[in-house]
């Protein structure tokens, strides 16, 4: 059993439009040629991927209102076990506009999410500790809603380690910086908005390597960092590798990072080495980027992309 924690789940609504025309006339109207609605948030995307790969998992997090009900329903319909904590307010709806020909630069409007009161935090910890009795891995990912302290992932990692369960953290900013102190098993910094984590810059491959080496020397098993859209660097105590996806036909980059992590996790659970798992994850991310689907979960489609993934050992 795998636990995924998404503190700030969402309903993700994606619109495909022909042309973004904000200044055309007084009241511009853009008609979507297609739209797509799904339950989202990093952990939930990972949960959906795992469930479709036949891997049992529990989705946890805070949900609220009608949007929360929609999230819960959609997650359950995927066969995922739910253990959400209900709070007042409304789970967020995130809107993405994908303009034809500019799919690499989606326009996103994200809501803040409901405020999480202290008693809800306490209840999540109770549920989490209970679930850890049956867990093999924990995935922690995404932004923190108002009311959730930046030490949240650190605390969850600490508790998981008390239960001898390895943790993957995919986060940014202070939340990740705090989590690093607990030495998670695998770290995937979210560098979309923050390229600096705990004082380390992650802008260039050289900077990523330096930070990765420092973190693995401290006891983190593996660090995985994306760069230049089609590259990921895997750094472990045993070496460093650059994974490159070649000849990618971009359709939708939105869920690619979540597919990457979910692919790594699913391959790991099935016994793959870290490097093999990273290659499978990269293929899952590439297949997702080449599809209009948020996260591609068709194993055949992912395996078809595997030859596009090239690995170069750096250290």
């Amino acid at each position: 059993m795998i636990i995924t924690v998404t503190p700030n789940p969402a309903i993700d609504k994606i619109y495909w439009i022909e042309q973004l025309c904000l200044d055309a006339g007084e009241l511009p109207v853009m008609r979507a040629t297609r739209s797509y609605l799904t339950a989202g948030g990093k952990g939930i995307n990972v949960s959906i991927f795992l469930a479709r790969m036949g891997i049992e998992n529990i989705a946890m997090g805070f949900i609220a209102g009608e949007t929360g009900r929609a999230v819960e329903r959609r997650v359950r319909d995927e066969g995922i076990t739910t253990s959400f904590i209900w709070v007042e307010g409304e789970t967020r709806t995130n809107v993405t506009l994908l303009e034809r020909g500019h799919e690499q630069r989606p326009i996103q409007i994200t809501e803040q999410g409901p405020t999480v009161p202290p008693d809800a935090l306490k209840r999540l910890l109770i549920h989490y500790k209970r679930a850890l009795n049956r867990a093999r891995y924990v995935f922690l990912g995404g932004s923190l809603p108002p009311g959730v302290p930046t030490q949240f992932y650190q605390e969850l990692t600490h508790i998981a380690h008390q239960h001898h369960v390895p943790v993957i953290v995919n986060a940014a900013g202070e939340a990740l910086a705090h989590a690093l102190l607990e030495k998670p098993w695998l770290v995937k910094p979210d560098t979309r908005q923050h390229t600096e984590i705990a004082g380390a810059s992650l802008k260039t491959p050289r900077e990523i390597l330096a930070a990765g080496k420092e973190w693995t020397a401290r006891g983190i098993e593996a660090v995985l960092v994306s760069h230049h859209i089609t590259h990921d660097l895997l750094i472990t105590c045993e070496g460093a590798w650059d994974l490159e996806a070649r000849d990618v036909q971009f359709q939708n980059l939105l869920g690619a990072e979540d597919a990457l992590i979910a692919g790594v996790l699913s391959a790991t659970v099935q016994g793959a080495s870290l490097l093999e798992a990273a290659r499978f994850g990269m293929a899952a991310a590439t297949a997702s980027a080449e599809s209009e689907e948020l996260v591609v979960t068709d194993r055949t489609a992912i395996e078809r992309v595997l030859p596009k993934i090239h690995i170069e050992q750096l250290l």
């Binding site: 066969g79 076990t81 253990s83």
Partner: peptide
């Protein structure tokens, strides 16, 4: 079954 673990303590 509905795979939900909502419970009270």
């Amino acid at each position: 079954m509905t795979k939900d673990l909502t419970a009270a303590e």
